[in-house]
Design a protein around this nucleic acid. Structure first.
Length: 445
DNA sequence: TCTCTGCTCAC
DNA sequence: CAAGTGAGCAGAGAC
């Protein structure tokens, strides 16, 4: 081994021997030519590196005045809420401290005699816990609102303007390519993959994400129901596949089957329940979790899940199969053959094993969605370059891509982006993409 | 200064 | 016991 340059060698220190191997041999053994791993490395992950680098360097412009105005409003509302919460409590305390808040609510004010504890023994004061206690005392609703507004101020509105690069005037996130166990990207410094959208107040933050100048717009393109389409394709479930092939509203179609009524007669409540079941399926949720989400008795949740799997029997069989395969092989795979190893799948501990089983169900779905959008990103980046477009890909949020586009390129880029996203892979069901433009990220949704 | 905990934002 | 993947913030305590 003396003739191998040191940078081409890996050393293993074992109990009673030092083993030296050629790096190239280790690589060939771990990623043999023609293997799915090698394909993912060479055709997806490596080509994605310069794409992500370009996105990071390009950055996204932030209108700091929008956030400045929001900050003033939030501070004033938080001041009033703090005053009122302290008055209800009767003692000064830090609302930001879950421990102090728990003591105020459950010892001092004693708003319930059934307080829940966390695993470390302190009072649980999470959103779901407080939501159930909202009628016991006026302080509870105020704490919930305080938490929501303080989250917006402390995580987004205050820090984001600080992260604008003085050179470019833009925010430059970092995409982490080898962090998430499923193959997803993550985003840090700042995380631009969790900018609020759910609440009215939070959504406003998206108005601060703007195109580079007056001659550009933001174009946001997102996959419609991509994970449910993937689960339909992977399971080959006839009911699910047919619904997607017919272009049906998937939650309405699901409700029609589960509740045994024609699609036209599905009401809002039934659709919303079916939607919750569909999402739960992606994570391996059980009756307990569904009951919690829908705020219905467990018995009822169990009935809904049973009706669901009676209708979508191929899906049930698929989930059973994927867990069995995980036990057999020690891993599960995405559409591209990306593996997630699950050593806990054979654990004797039912809690630990249950976790691994839900990972076995979820990872192929979440990971396949990651595979698909990564392929689309590589193709789109190449097509924009080859087409001589000035449009730039600037953000990825798991099932969504955002572009900064000159106004005269909008229609061509929209077509290019949608077409590459929809054709990234060929599945047994169509992939659909919705694209919208706007003068800010909120408007583009 | 570092790490852990609890909480909450996104998909 | 119970719903997957992440990141960031403030509090609290160890060092």
């Amino acid at each position: 081994m003396a003739d191998i340059p040191p940078e081409e060698v890996v050393n293993y220190a074992c109990e009673d021997a030092d083993i030296t191997l050629r790096l190239a041999d280790v690589f060939e053994a771990r990623m043999p030519a023609g293997s799915p791993e090698r394909h993912i490395l060479e055709e997806v992950e490596m080509p994605l590196v310069p794409v992500l680098a370009d996105m990071e360097m390009e950055g996204v412009r932030l209108d700091v005045d929008v956030l400045g105005a929001m900050a003033e409003g939030l501070k004033e509302d938080l001041r009033k809420l703090t005053e009122s919460i302290q008055a209800h409590a009767g003692v000064p305390f830090s609302i930001d401290s879950p421990r102090q808040l728990g003591e105020v609510l459950f010892d001092h004010l004693a708003i319930t005699d059934k307080a829940k504890k966390t695993k470390t023994g302190q009072y649980a004061t999470g959103e779901d816990v407080l939501q159930k206690l909202v009628d016991t005392h006026p302080i509870v609703a105020e704490v919930l609102e305080y938490r929501q507004l303080n989250k917006l101020l402390s995580t987004y509105v205050r820090p984001l303007p600080e992260l604008v690069d003085p050179e470019t005037g833009r925010i430059h996130t970092q995409y982490m390519q080898a962090v998430a166990a499923t193959g997803r990207l993550s985003s840090t410094q700042p995380n631009l993959q969790n900018i609020p959208i759910r609440t009215k107040r939070g959504r406003e933050i998206r108005k601060a994400f703007v195109p580079r100048d007056a001659n550009h717009v933001l174009l946001a393109a997102d996959y419609s129901q991509v994970e449910l389409r993937i689960v339909a394709a992977l399971s080959g479930d006839r009911g699910l596949c047919t619904a997607f092939l017919e272009g049906a509203d998937i939650h309405t179609a699901t409700a029609a089957k589960v509740f045994g009524v024609p699609a036209e007669e599905v009401d809002r409540g039934q659709r919303s329940q079916a939607k919750a079941v569909n999402f739960g399926i992606l994570y391996g949720q059980g009756a307990f979790g569904l009951a919690e989400t829908l705020k219905i008795p467990r018995r009822e949740a169990k009935g809904i899940i049973e009706a669901y799997f009676a209708e979508f029997a191929d899906l049930k069989a698929y989930q059973t199969r994927v867990v069995e395969e995980a036990k057999e092989n020690g891993y599960v795979e995405t559409v591209l053959g990306r593996k997630r190893w699950l050593p806990d799948i054979t654990s004797a501990n039912a809690v630990v094993r249950g976790f691994a089983e839900r990972n076995a169900i979820n990872a192929p779905i979440q990971g396949s969605a990651a595979d698909i959008i990564k392929i689309a990103m590589v193709h789109i980046h190449r097509a924009l370059d080859e087409g001589g477009f000035k449009a730039r890909m600037i953000l990825q949020v798991h099932d969504e891509l955002v572009f900064d586009v000159p106004t005269d390129e909008v229609e061509a880029v929209r077509e290019l982006v949608c077409s590459h996203m929809e054709r990234a892979v060929e599945l047994a069901v169509p992939l659909e993409v919705e694209a919208q433009t706007g003068q800010d990220w909120l408007e583009a949704h």
